[in-house]
Write a protein that binds this DNA or RNA. Structure first.
Lengths: 350, 350
DNA sequence: CTCCGCGGTTTGAACGATCTAATACAGGAC
DNA sequence: GTCCTGTATTAGATCGTTCAAACCGCGGAG
């Protein structure tokens, strides 16, 4: 009800009979203040329920402790979920580290860069979190060139060869997709499967090729690489997954499908179930997905889960270090190991 | 590369040979400035690529044009998707209206209220967007009591009776769930179905009861209310949906299921398909969901879609009006009509 | 001729914090 | 007693903007 304005440094100072600066010191470098005085000031702060105005502080120090994040475009797909969970974790971790997350939108990379500049110029945002990095991404270059702190969720997928040799690698965190599909494939091998096909995206996407590599490695380790079967879809999607699965299952000996995403896996699952009714004689076919989206849980699909919480924690750590001017305090790159969530689609035949 | 600091009002003023205040006026109330001068100042602004420092402005005017939003808790369910899409639309609309969205997290309503206060006191956030309002929600009361601008996505679900008669209704936007299930039910009636069951949540949740009411109304309008069959699940979820569907389909004459959510519908769909193989003689059963999540598209499920874009646009409009001090410029409540997306699960039997 | 009113512009203070430099004071060396 | 050193605290300037009031020149009324 009461409209009275909040207390300021000056109010607290008067109340504790010290100067503004002493109050400021109590908050920012308590060690320079005599214990007696400090105590008195802290009491005054508590009594008045004083809280520093971060806007004024920001104007003076040119530090906002705010991170910008382009709202990940709604992919309409099922896997978009991962980014939403990441956003949640990021907000959480940032808050814990004394940072805030501010959102914005942009239609493409160029617009996003314009928005970086705008946000820096007008609101003094301290850093950015990038998602969905891709080959030849202009955003990372711009940010690096302008000395803006940032971290990307996703590796730079450029050819190592094309870049200048200076290895100006920026800070990033990513999921080790290769380890994920490797784990899924090993799990299937352990269960006795010998002919395991991979349903993937078109060649050329960094993420997709990485996941493909993990499956291949596991087969090679088991001495089964000669028999590797791959079927690529045109695009991510449930219908595409079903089509690819049908193509793969033409071969009678194929008993398991490792899928590059939950969407594809969902389609594969439908194809597999149809096959089970039309050809009851055939051995049951196991399926694994990738991302562990809510749908995977719903249809009891084994899937590779991305620990987005860990990714977010690491991203915040990296950004905080850059903002505080100690960019090399921590390793600037982190590859996080996903884990397999085993569900019904890979359990022993019923 | 160049580290030189950005131009300020003073820089522009010097460049255009006017005072700071005149530059400020050109930006904020151009009509008080002589066209000649205005022209000159605008040229200087363009030449220097000047952009006002919103932090300094905020300190002086005590307006931030920033909205706070508690990151919707990840429901793990499939329907959580809706809030993510809303968040995206909100960011978009806010940006268009000159507002920004800042995120925070909180574990419960009390913590959320503490965070409101904290954000107001320290960063001077101008308003809040609430999601997932529920019965006896303490947040709306606190915000209203403290004269903080806010809009909720979701009606206040309190009993109209218990409140004081003053109808201190706050600003809100919501989806007309009743109209949604009504449309779905009518669609089924038009297709010739006569025994349409409803699979819903436990009684007592505002949203669930609202959706239930729409189904009942449609049946009553068709003179079929006497035969209404309802089955409630214990909780939202795919397994629960399957169980409820099986209970409903015990009656042989039931040929359609209207579901309160896509999760339930997904389960129902599985049950229906199983039934189709075990009893091929029986008429095919139609299913509708609610939310039109990506999964619905994936499994070809007819579902009621929430136009979250419209909700977001309206929410921003309402907040902007409050922040600008004209709280009654627009209707403070808006009920938005969802629409039905017809897909395979309600098409004529194959 | 003086004075008033008025539109356009300028000046100085204020928002609430931090930075820099100055000050007060106590204790020790000579 | 004087001077120096070092520590705890204070005063004033500053960040970039907007608010409030003052200023200035000019035309018209008295």
């Amino acid at each position: 009800m009461a409209q009275e304005s909040r207390p300021t440094l000056a109010t607290v100072a008067a109340h504790a009979k010290v100067s503004r600066q002493t109050v400021s010191n109590v908050l920012n470098s308590p060690e320079v203040v005599l214990p007696d005085t400090r105590e008195r000031v802290l009491r005054a702060i508590a009594e008045l329920d004083y809280r520093p105005n971060v806007v004024a502080r920001q104007l003076r120090t040119r530090r906002s402790y705010v991170l910008g994040l382009r709202m990940p475009p709604t992919t309409d797909g099922i896997s978009g979920q991962v980014l939403d969970r990441f956003l949640h974790a990021l907000t959480d971790e940032a808050q814990r580290a004394g940072l805030r997350v501010m959102l914005f939108t942009a239609d493409d990379d160029e617009a996003e860069i314009r928005e970086y500049e705008n946000l820096r110029a007008t609101t003094g945002i301290d850093g950015f979190v990038l998602t969905a990095t891709h080959e030849g991404d202009p955003r990372t270059r711009w940010l690096a060139d302008h000395d803006v702190p940032f971290v990307s969720f996703g590796r730079p997928w450029d050819d190592a060869g094309t870049g200048d040799g200076t290895s100006h690698e920026h800070a990033w965190v990513d999921i080790d997709g290769r380890a994920g599909t490797r784990a899924a494939t090993r799990h299937l091998l352990d269960a006795g499967h010998r002919h395991i096909a991979f349903l993937g995206w078109p060649e050329g996407s960094g993420v997709g090729d990485d996941r493909h590599a993990g499956w291949y490695e596991a087969l090679a380790d088991a001495g089964l690489a000669g028999d590797a079967v791959v079927h690529r879809t045109m695009d991510d999607g449930v219908a595409q997954g079903a089509a690819a699965a049908n193509r793969a299952l033409v071969r009678d000996d194929v008993t398991a499908l490792v899928c590059v995403s939950d969407s594809i896996a969902l389609g594969a699952l439908a194809a597999v179930r149809e096959l089970a009714t039309s050809r009851p004689d055939r051995a049951p076919v196991a399926v694994t997905g990738f991302d562990d989206t809510p749908v995977a849980g719903a249809v009891d699909l084994t899937s590779v889960a991305q620990p987005v919480g860990d990714v977010a924690a690491r991203a915040v750590e990296l950004l905080r270090a850059q903002i505080d001017g100690r960019p090399d305090a921590v390793n600037r790159q982190a590859l996080i190991e996903p884990y397999l969530v085993v569900r019904g689609t890979t359990r022993a035949p019923r």
